[in-house]
Amino acid sequence: MMRRGLAGQRLVATFLGGALLFNYPVLSLLDRSEPFFGMPMLWACLFIVWAVLIAVVAWIAERGAR
């Protein structure tokens, strides 16, 4: 029970973090015209943040399942 409640709170926290990262004003920081390793900065950063977010959620969810 304890663990499930904790996982739930972690997921909500992750949601809030994700919502922050995926919106203004953080988004405007990533929106630069210069390339990032040859790729568009915004595009690359969004995918990286996205992937990290999924990894974090996976860690929380699967950990809670043990």
């Binding site: 997921l11 992750t14 915004l42």
Partner: peptide, 21 residues
């Protein structure tokens, strides 16, 4: 619209992190 196709998939990602709730 460039990256404007992405919110349609970022939204579900965020929503799914709340799915357990």
């Amino acid at each position: 619209g460039g990256v404007w196709f992405l919110p349609i998939y970022l939204g579900p990602t965020l929503a799914m992190s709340l799915s357990w709730v």
